[in-house]
């Protein structure tokens, strides 16, 4: 969901009153031609707003909240749920944490290393799964008009447009920024997630909960790998016979 050029210009005035377009591009590392093109088309990418905000030490989430389509980001801070926090822990990190639990290994070695930053390889899908009550996808589909199969395709590719990410959060009744963290548009810190919140959420999981969660992740990963192997084998067969 792009931002109208007019609204963008107004916002830019407020955040960097005396800066020329060239200055803005230099400071934020955006190519001048890219920004010029976005302005000519009248559609400015969300990424552009985020980059410029960071360059001028403004909070990207607060910046986005200025624009009509992102109003939902304004309002009182909404702390992330435990499920959301855990969903943003990568599968390798989760497995390492499990291996360092005494239930898994009576004589655990060193403590698990620090968690890698969000997002991770399957963070979008894990986030939606974490907040899905079973009907979230249908509700998002109904409210945005995006076909369920297109929505699923984005999740499978570990992608979600900001519009859909916010609609999903609203449909699930969680904080509106969670999806933007999961898609990597903004960082946990920018979203107002407390430092160490994911580690704390992970530590609060019981051995049983963590084991089941890790099992679910492995099963999902196994499915993806198997499907990939199947596709690969099928393609190989085509090469072999017709290549």
């Amino acid at each position: 969901m792009t931002i109208p050029a007019k609204a963008f210009q107004r916002w830019l005035q407020s955040i960097a009153p005396d800066a020329s377009t060239a200055d803005v591009c230099r400071v934020s590392g955006i190519k001048r031609t890219t920004l010029a093109q976005q302005l000519v088309r009248g559609k400015v990418a969300v990424h552009t707003v985020v980059s410029i905000s960071r360059a001028y030490h403004a909070n990207p989430v607060a910046s986005l909240a200025v624009f009509d389509d992102y109003r939902v980001l304004a309002g009182p801070p909404h702390p992330p749920t435990k499920c959301e926090l855990v969903s943003q822990i990568s599968t390798p990190d989760l497995l390492r944490a499990l291996l360092s639990r005494s239930a898994m290994d009576p004589a655990p070695g060193a403590a698990a290393p620090a968690l890698g930053p969000a997002p991770h390889a399957t963070s979008v899908k894990n986030w939606v799964d974490a907040i899905d009550d079973g009907e979230v996808r249908q509700r998002v589909s109904a409210s945005t008009g995006v076909a369920p199969q297109n929505y699923s395709a984005q999740l499978t590719a570990n992608r979600l447009s900001p519009e859909l990410a916010m609609a999903t959060a609203v449909a699930a009744g969680v904080g509106p920024v969670g999806g933007l963290v999961a898609t990597g548009l903004v960082t946990e810190e920018e979203a107002g997630w407390p430092a160490g919140a994911r580690q704390a959420a992970l530590d609060s999981l019981s051995d049983g909960e963590l084991t089941v969660l890790a099992g679910d992740r492995l099963q999902a990963l196994g499915k993806v790998l198997r499907r990939h192997e199947h596709d690969q084998a099928q393609t190989e067969k085509i090469w072999e016979n017709l290549g």
Binding site: Q234, K237, I238, E240, N241, L242
Partner: peptide, 8 residues
């Protein structure tokens, strides 16, 4: 033969 084998 080739096509049916290739495409399984």
């Amino acid at each position: 033969i080739r096509v049916s084998r290739g495409f399984g």
